[in-house]
Design a protein around this nucleic acid. Structure first.
Lengths: 192, 192
DNA sequence: ACTGTTATTGTACAACTGTATAATAACATA
DNA sequence: TATGTTATTATACAGTTGTACAATAACAGT
């Protein structure tokens, strides 16, 4: 049986730290493999033994962020099931039940990269799929409803739309204000 | 005064044709500058005189697609102002008033690239901004409503969410069915 | 401590990148 | 047609990429 190799742990840690350091004053897209390896003091061949491109390392970072996102949904106050909102539910919507904005604010540095221009759409879709699958879990009581797939994608991307606007506004609004924006938006779009 | 230089016209045309040809059996991300220049029979230095990377050429393509999108809104039957939908309007929504799905279907080949994984987010945001600005024109009668910026981004990205789902479903649904999905989605999300 | 496994290193290679320069040819305008 | 402008070419260069290979060192398990 194979346990985790200490060499790999050490190498990856060096790469993580190097990337984190380089990201402080350089865009992800501009970081070269050679540069990263130089900073991490590892052989370039070693990098290609584990990854294909610099973005793959960031992807590993983001995978952990996604885990946190998914765990946010498991908390007592669950994610808002906007899909199932009825008139009454909407009126009584407690902004505190929405966890997504907390999460984004918590990992603000990451989302500044993910939502920036000229970055791979891979991360966007990772984010999209994470939110979408949670929407589905929230709403499917029992059987999977194939007919609602468009509804899921509609609502998922709508929320991300709010987050894009938040990002473009340099995340100035507080989490609570963002929750209120969500409620307000639902009101406006439904003409109430 | 400078008129358009024929040399530039000829060079760009060669690049356009080369990229179009290469895109038939290669992903945008995998196309090298050298490869493109070889195919276009132009010097690599000439390419860098006009562009910085292969994606810039595709960006020029897409800019024309965006123009068509904007023109779609100017047609007699305008784009749906989902923002302003009232109960009555929703009930009477004529799917034919929605032009966006026609547009996407028309440029299906482009949107297959733009919405694919591991592509620059630049194109996504070009698409996003085009739709969003049209939403704003539709709804602002007179003064610009700063407070509605989140609503605009919410609705814009929601529509794109439907298109993402459409793309993932290999654009199988007809345009009319997509219009119905939009109506249905608005019904479900508003709990009617 | 021994042994088989494998991650890491150093090296090499062809191809690509981005930039720079000088010479040339194609261009617009008058 | 002549002239000034500039897009294009050819060439060069240092650095990067992706891959391959053999040698080595670090590792896990017994």
């Amino acid at each position: 049986m194979r346990a985790k190799d200490l060499r790999v742990v050490k190498t990856k840690k060096a790469i993580y730290q190097a990337l984190t350091h380089l990201l402080k004053d350089k865009r992800l897209t501009d970081i070269k493999v050679s540069e990263l390896c130089r900073e991490a003091s590892i052989n370039r061949g070693t990098f290609y033994f584990h990854y294909e491109e610099v973005g793959d390392v960031f992807k590993e970072f983001f995978e952990e962020v996604i885990v946190d996102l998914e765990e946010s949904y498991k908390e007592p106050y669950k994610y808002i099931s906007a899909l199932q909102l009825k008139n009454s539910a909407l009126k009584n919507l407690d902004p505190k039940t929405v966890r997504i904005f907390h999460h984004v604010k918590k990992y603000e540095d990451f989302y500044r990269i993910i939502l920036s221009d000229n970055v791979s759409t891979t991360y966007y879709y990772m984010f999209f799929d994470a939110i979408r699958s949670n929407f589905m879990e929230d709403s499917k009581i029992g059987k999977y409803d194939e007919s609602k797939k468009f509804v899921y994608s509609f609502m998922t991307n709508a929320i991300i739309g709010l987050i894009i606007e938040w990002y473009r506004n340099d995340f100035e609004e507080s989490v609570d204000v963002m929750n209120l924006h969500l409620v307000e938006t639902l009101n406006v779009t439904t003409g109430r």
